[in-house]
Design a protein around this nucleic acid. Structure first.
Lengths: 331, 331
DNA sequence: GACAATTTTGTAATCGATTACAATCCAAGT
DNA sequence: ACTTGGATTGTAATCGATTACAAAATTGTC
């Protein structure tokens, strides 16, 4: 492999000069510049970034930890992150945890081992203390998720108000017996959506039937199964708020499988606004999260941390939006 | 930051010994081992991987170049890659090209700059020569895509026979006037699927109406638009073979929008078998690609190249499968 | 206890760039 | 021609680990 010394030799200059041509061209004379460039060209020299990084103590790489890259919501956030990263000359190291807390923890080491300059976490199921610890010494930002009582910079929507808005929409259309299928309750974000649901019900003085609140795991299957459970229990609500579009679709499938119709018999409202939610029939009424923008903002925030710029707001809350389609109707 | 010298000092040994504790524990005596481990523990030392990598000239990182991470098919392949990579102690650097050939090319440098030990390409739209060039000096494997006349190791399905199988299925059900909506024809894989379509038609002595062969771009929208074009032209086939499930769904949406039904009025057959294709209504009849396995195999192949093991078969063809659901019926 | 064989440890070179500092060059001013 | 100061260039230290080789310590044998 050709190294900087080969180029230096060929161009009859020192390695320092070659290095300067590459990194501070304004400090070398035009004629030597040409000589060096010619040598680089001739040898097809590419600097070894490992060496540069070791010397500069920076990798121009950031780590993104995702619970499941297969989930279109996360992949869209990831794309937002990537877009900004590339624009700023950074590369993205991918850490898919497969929803496994242990693997999630493992990725924390990558920062300490200096393989990345910073990290964006799209999941934070591990113990808060460990994350805090790492965040004290390295740039870390949370996207989507947040950690209660922590000052780690975060980008997300307001899940409580989003869920509240969704539930109020159902109530305003006349629904009173409303079911809620939540995400895994060990995740703050799931608890927030549930909280928003309760808040809306309480504000309108409606009673929540505990049977109608069930814990899912955001997946289509869990939505399907929990709806089937409602059928089995003989406890049918007039509307259901599902904490993810995937689950909402599962719920609708279950309803259809029983020969009932959405929204005629039961209304269903989702959360996320996946691309597929508009293709699905009936079109899902849902709370839209600006996934791409969440990614962009998270990466921009991370850049500021890396560059030690002042960060005014540590918690960025982006706007969510109720998207009305056909899966909900007035009672 | 604490380095190996700090540990060495604290444990009263040389840096060499500390290094050995970390990498060849069997060569150090039990008692010193303990001393060193204690020091490591006390200082919370994590070795700087950059330094190790520079010395060893390996990064334990592989680059995956994807046209669009948001596409669930690719993200599933990526997951397969990641699963094997993690199991073998490798990390994944993500290169999303956003379908941009220039960015695709740019990622080739990462290998030469030694930021990765090898590369899996899920897209190969750039000029073959450039890829070949890189593949001569570095481990590269293609997944899904392949390059004509190249000996770069590849993992994929047989797109020609898959498409042929799909088309023959339609023909066997009595369809004769069959439309084909292809992927972008600058991609080999799209041309192969089209080729398979033609082969099936020819084998059964059916005439292909050129109007019914249209070039899409794999997206839902292009499927929708091209089907609308068929309507506008007043040229309706009895069945359509779409080269991706996304397009198939677009086609079906378009048909429904005209008040017709699938499969009663027109049959539609897709390609890929996305998770969503079974949720969609009608359930998509389609050719299933083993996305996860493609990823796994590609990564395993890459590992062999990296370890300079003998590679018997350079071209791995995995089995595709016709999945029959409800979007196709006999005429 | 002496000596050889074997283990264990240390010294210093090395990976391939960057960069502080020193040395040299060059042009302008007198 | 002779300074002088800024622009260029070179020398060598440096980033933080690994590892070849040498040295020291240990073990076993007679």
């Amino acid at each position: 492999m050709v190294g900087i010394v080969d180029v230096a030799k060929k161009a009859n200059v020192s390695t320092a000069t070659v290095s300067r041509v590459l990194t501070k061209p304004e400090t070398v004379r035009g004629t030597t510049m040409e000589k060096v460039l010619k040598a680089i060209e001739a040898l097809n020299y590419q600097p070894n970034l490992l060496a540069r990084q070791l010397r500069r103590l920076e990798t121009k790489t950031i780590l993104v930890v995702v619970p499941d890259i297969t989930n279109p919501f996360f992949s869209k956030v990831l794309r937002g992150i990537e877009a900004v990263a590339v624009a700023k000359g950074y590369q993205v190291l991918l850490g898919d945890t497969g929803n496994d807390v242990e693997r999630e923890k493992g990725y924390l080491n990558i920062l300490q081992q200096k393989k990345a300059d910073g990290m964006v976490l799209l999941t934070a199921r591990m113990d808060a203390a460990a994350v805090e610890e790492v965040a004290r010494s390295f740039p870390v930002v949370l996207a989507c998720e947040y950690i209660e009582g922590s000052r780690i910079p975060t980008v997300s929507i307001d899940n409580i108000s989003g869920a509240r808005k969704a539930t109020e929409y159902l109530i305003d259309l006349g629904h009173e017996r409303i079911g809620c299928i939540t995400g895994p309750l060990d995740i703050v974000l799931s608890r927030d959506r549930l909280k928003g649901f309760y808040q809306a019900m309480a504000r309108k003085n409606l009673i929540v039937d505990p049977v109608l609140v069930q814990e899912g795991d955001f997946s289509f299957d869990s939505g399907f199964n929990l709806m089937m459970k409602f059928f089995a229990l003989g406890q049918l609500p007039t509307a259901i708020f599902a904490a993810s579009d995937d689950m909402a679709m599962g719920v609708i499938k279950a309803i259809k499988s029983k020969g009932l119709k959405v929204p005629e018999d039961i209304s269903v409202l989702g959360f996320d606004n996946l691309k597929f939610s508009s293709i699905f029939e009936p079109g899902l009424t849902t709370i839209a999260q600006p996934a791409f923008e969440i990614g962009e903002n998270a990466m921009e925030l991370l850049m500021k941390l890396i560059n030690k710029e002042e960060v005014k707001r540590e918690q960025i809350i982006l706007a969510d939006q109720l998207v009305v389609r056909e899966s909900v109707r007035t009672i």
